[in-house]
Simulated scan of single mutants.
Amino acid sequence: MNQISLSNSAFEGDNNAYVFADGPETVLIDTGDQMASTREQLEAELAELDVELSDVDRILLTHWHGDHTGLAGDIQAESGASVHVHAADAPLVSGDEAAWEAMWQTQRELFASWGMPEAKQAALFDRMSYSDLSGTHPDVTPFEGGETFFVNGQELRVVHASGHAAGLCLFEFDQADRTEVFSGDALLPKYTPNVGGADVRVDRPLEKYIRALQAIAAADYDRAWPGHRDPIEDPTARAEEIIHHHEERAWRVLDVLRQQGSCDPWTVSAALFGELHDIHVLHGPGEAYAHLEHLEHADVVERVGTDYRIPDATRRELDALNEQRWDLGI
């Protein structure tokens, strides 16, 4: 297996694609985005392995985001490769117009309820236009999670890890006496993957993501190969670090409500992250919303219209804490 680093049009740092070309099949995990420069990089890296795009037999996708799936349609058109992705993400990857329109409508409704200013909404939709229906979309073969793919004698076991995206999946495999995993954007070495904004279709995104992280920590993988940047040598520690990060963020969300009173997600986001630009306009209030929604379901905060407030019992509990960290109860 070879890791290929590709530039992207997002902010998380270079994308990773992974290629298996050491046997009768050529298989890719993720493809990078749809930019011509990305395709040129991918072709050049494959050429170092004496492989062309037309040689690709299968593409396994970790999730639907365009920086991971952008070239899948072009590669399939050139090679006839089959494209596999979780059933929850398959309609978006295949360019199903009804699925995209439903997601856009959910975004419009949520952005308004979050308190996002109309000018910011318009700029954000312009920014996200790279994910529209103008590119080449592949025919996809959906999977559900729990399957095993066999690639040149190597078993890749599918583990569904919803949260960042509805259909996000890991591919775990054994290497001698080690178990490693392709983690997509479920586990990254630097940034904490966004929840709430990255896929507005996900119900209870923070709870789902924390459970995915708990499962990663329990699996005790020996190494993770992420969707961005360098391999993670201690995936359990990194998963636990991100869980701790969200406990600290929950405390900060509650502290904003304690200090400012009733707030909508946009106001909480501004207090947490300041003025936002570019794709962060989606991710900031989305993450604030994910936390507020979770805290509401846990009866920690109350929702009044589009605003959230902390009841007296929560205020007393918050005041009594000795550390800036809130148990998420997951």
Rank of each mutant, 00 (worst) to 15 (best):
N2W: 10
I4Q: 07
A10E: 01
F11L: 07
D14T: 06
N15A: 08
F20Y: 10
F20T: 00
G23T: 01
T31M: 07
Q34S: 14
R39H: 01
E40G: 00
E40F: 06
L46V: 00
L49V: 00
L49K: 11
E52D: 10
V56M: 08
H63T: 03
G66R: 12
D67V: 14
L71M: 11
D74V: 14
D74L: 15
A81S: 11
V83Q: 06
A87R: 12
A87T: 05
A88P: 02
A90Q: 12
G95M: 12
A102Q: 14
M103K: 14
Q105F: 15
T106R: 15
Q107N: 12
P117K: 14
A119E: 15
A119Y: 13
K120L: 15
L124K: 03
D126H: 12
F143Y: 15
G146I: 02
E147R: 00
V158N: 06
V159Y: 10
H160Q: 13
A161S: 03
H164N: 13
F173P: 02
F173Y: 14
T179H: 14
T179G: 02
E180G: 01
E180V: 09
V181W: 09
F182T: 08
S183T: 11
D185F: 09
K190R: 13
K208A: 12
K208Y: 02
K208R: 15
R211H: 12
R211E: 08
Q214M: 14
D222G: 03
H228T: 11
D230G: 11
I232H: 04
I243Q: 08
E247Q: 09
R249S: 05
L254E: 03
V256C: 02
L257A: 07
S269Y: 03
E275L: 10
L276F: 01
H277C: 06
A290E: 04
E293T: 04
E293W: 00
H294M: 05
H297E: 02
D299S: 11
E302T: 10
E302K: 05
T306S: 04
D307H: 13
N322K: 14
Q324G: 05
Q324M: 08
W326N: 00
D327V: 06
G329V: 01
